[in-house]
């Protein structure tokens, strides 16, 4: 929602001063990055996304994992000029919002690259600024170098960012519920989209879901269980998974629900190995 002229001015001033300031030690303030809650996943947003995973330059996102290539390749193709990372992203938070989960997970998985994907521009910028600040505040330990956030419509462009069988964990935390039946196709879980999640996931990789909307929980369970590539993980296994614990307590939505004394419904699904061809 466009703010009042002077409110918007303040926000712009704030953001420029933040990005120009030499010591970005301060964490960004959320109030300057709020944005209308819903973005239409079907419309043609002005999005930037790579043509294919081969053409994605990850180096600005994970500078300390970038390999500086000594023996310069002389092939002058577009792709061979793209810097490489020492590892690939394996943990994705889809619709990461303000990134609470990412900041909690990053120190727990220091050897893995984590990526938040978010469709709302301002919210993405907030997470990006916060990552910068957290990296600077923790420059001694080198924490948070393994986390990044980018703007993307994951319902359309996951295969542009990730190779087949690249991800080991996907988080779908408190997805927009789209209550009205007419809007159900906008839900981030559906039998057809689940095939795309299966495509970008390694066999035995896990999809984590959490919501406070029981109806949406049932919907997600129903659609993942009905999909031949996934099986639901047992309650006992869920209970010992540290990611489940973090997901319950560290997401912004999770905290809100906690404050309001609401319920949280968790369901996790493991990706099967693809069956042989018939």
């Amino acid at each position: 929602m466009p703010g009042q002229p002077n409110k918007r001015q303040k926000r712009d001033d704030y953001r420029t001063s933040l990005s120009q300031s030499e010591h970005r030690i301060q964490l960004p303030k959320k109030k300057f990055y709020r944005q209308r809650a819903h973005a239409n996943p079907f419309s043609d947003h002005v999005l930037t996304y790579p043509e294919s995973p081969d053409t994605m330059d990850w180096s600005p996102y994970y500078p300390s994992f970038t390999i500086t290539n000594e023996n310069e390749s002389h092939e002058d193709t577009e792709i061979s000029n793209i810097p490489h990372l020492s590892k690939r992203v394996e943990i994705a938070d889809i619709g990461c919002g303000y990134g609470g989960l990412l900041f909690a997970l990053a120190p727990r998985f220091p050897d893995q690259l984590l990526l938040g994907l978010e469709i709302r521009t301002s919210v993405t910028e907030f997470v990006q600024e916060k990552i910068k600040a957290m990296r600077q505040q923790n420059s001694e330990t080198g924490l948070y170098q393994n986390v990044a956030c980018l703007r993307a419509n994951t319902m359309k462009f996951l295969p542009n960012f990730f190779y087949k069988a690249q991800l080991s964990k996907i988080f779908l935390c408190f997805p927009d519920p789209h209550f009205k039946a007419r809007k159900h196709k906008a839900r981030i879980v559906s039998s057809t989209l689940n095939s795309e999640y299966a495509y970008v996931m390694k066999p035995a990789g896990v999809i984590y879901t959490i919501t406070d909307v029981e109806d949406l929980h049932n919907w997600m369970v129903e659609h993942f269980e009905a999909h031949p590539s996934f099986e639901r993980i047992s309650k006992t296994e869920e209970d010992v998974d540290v990611c489940v614990k973090i997901m319950k307590s560290e997401t912004e939505e999770g905290k809100k629900v906690e404050r309001n004394g609401g319920h949280k419904f968790v369901a996790c699904f493991r990706r099967f190995e693809d069956p042989p061809w018939p």
């Binding site: 519920p177 209550f179 909307v213 029981e214 109806d215 949406l216 809100k256 629900v257």
Partner: peptide, 14 residues
């Protein structure tokens, strides 16, 4: 069944 409980925190529109 109502899709969310009254405890669910959501936007005015929801």
């Amino acid at each position: 069944i109502p899709s969310a409980t009254n405890l669910t925190v959501h936007t005015a529109r929801n």
